[in-house]
């Protein structure tokens, strides 16, 4: 699936906040409390419905000084894991301001 033009945003039933750069999530189905690692937290923070997947990759590539190709692959893989865990959903359109 090509998700690069999609806009990830938090799943409405996942409770989560980014606190000091670390995303604390409470998963809706299990009520488990989880904490994302540093890069994951940054991606979760950017997944706010206003940034497309490719825009998130671009930001991550810049901030972590990795190649765009690597960022594309890692961000995509990571976001799809979050989709599987109902942490985020992928929207076709950008969030209305």
């Amino acid at each position: 699936m090509n998700i690069s033009k999609m806009y990830p945003k938090p799943h409405p039933q996942t409770a989560g906040r980014v606190i000091d750069g670390e995303a604390v999530l409470i998963l809706a189905d299990s009520s488990e409390v989880n904490v994302l690692n540093q890069v994951g937290s940054r991606i979760f923070e950017l997944a706010n419905g206003n940034n497309s997947v490719e825009e998130i990759s671009e930001t991550i590539a810049g901030e972590y000084e990795i190649s765009r190709e690597q960022a594309d692959a890692d961000v995509r893989e990571f976001l799809l894991q979050l989709v599987d865990q109902s942490v985020i959903i992928l929207d076709e359109k950008e969030e209305d301001e």
């Binding site: 606190i19 000091d20 999530l25 989880n34 904490v35 690692n37 994951g40 894991q81 865990q85």
Partner: peptide, 28 residues
């Protein structure tokens, strides 16, 4: 790069809660 997507790390969670207490940040 990102490692495991969801890090089930209770210590990390407890650390965050402790930090919110220490820094007067609203948590609950």
């Amino acid at each position: 790069m990102t490692g495991q997507a969801v890090d089930v790390n209770t210590n990390s969670y407890n650390d965050i809660v402790r930090r919110t207490r220490d820094e007067h940040r609203l948590f609950s």
